[in-house]
Amino acid sequence: MQITVNGKTRQFDAVTNITTLLENLGLDPARVAIEHNLAIVPLAEFSATTISDGDSLEIVQFVGGG
């Protein structure tokens, strides 16, 4: 399945929803903000948000400090 993440199109296997995509990318779900096809997705809905071929995601990772 081809997914565009932060402007780069990549091939992913075994990715079905946002949670599995983040596992695949090695990212902590609690520390990212995600736009899925231009819609913001809250953390509570990561597992329920299905990812399909051709989808586009913006993933913003946060680090601590302020």
Partner: peptide, 24 residues
């Protein structure tokens, strides 16, 4: 970091169309 992510999703999702300036 988790609070930053929480706020981004809550504000951008809950107040659509308004800009957010975050820091990381």
């Amino acid at each position: 970091a988790d609070q930053k992510a929480m706020l981004a999703a809550a504000f951008l999702g809950g107040c659509p169309g308004k800009p957010l300036v975050a820091a990381s």
